[in-house]
């Protein structure tokens, strides 16, 4: 199982693929990301790699199950999904999306 993620070209923010044919299908909230089967994920990745005016640097994040990151990726993807863990300045993605932390 995999997630498709990238940064939006215009503002660089982390996005998660949540279905649909165009950019409006991507979401800043990782909780809403579509859980993809491996083959579908690989095909979508190829598709989105070519769509450079919409997203930058798309890649796949492997999951062990619905809500569990592979350990090797854990801290990095947790930080990308939830915002910096640090400080006065932490962008509290979870609060913005009115939900708890993802993963």
């Amino acid at each position: 199982m995999k997630l498709l993620t990238a940064n939006r070209l215009t503002d660089g923010l982390v996005l998660w693929y949540a279905g649909g044919p165009d950019l409006s299908g991507w979401n800043e909230d990782a909780a809403l990301a579509t859980r993809l089967e491996d083959e579908a994920a690989a095909a979508l990745l190829e598709d989105w790699k070519a769509r450079e005016t919409e997203v930058v640097a798309p890649y796949l994040v492997p999951l062990l199950d619905e809500n569990t990151l592979v350990k090797r990726e854990y801290v990095r993807e947790h930080v990308r999904a939830n915002g910096p863990t640090a400080g006065q300045t932490a962008f509290d993605t979870a609060r913005q999306h009115q939900r708890g932390e993802v993963f």
Partner: peptide, 22 residues
Amino acid sequence: LSEDQFKPLRLMNGLYLQLHAY
């Protein structure tokens, strides 16, 4: 411009793409 073409140009102007944003 593709991302490959643009990346060195933005870096020459101090603009990186990091984990969360530029």
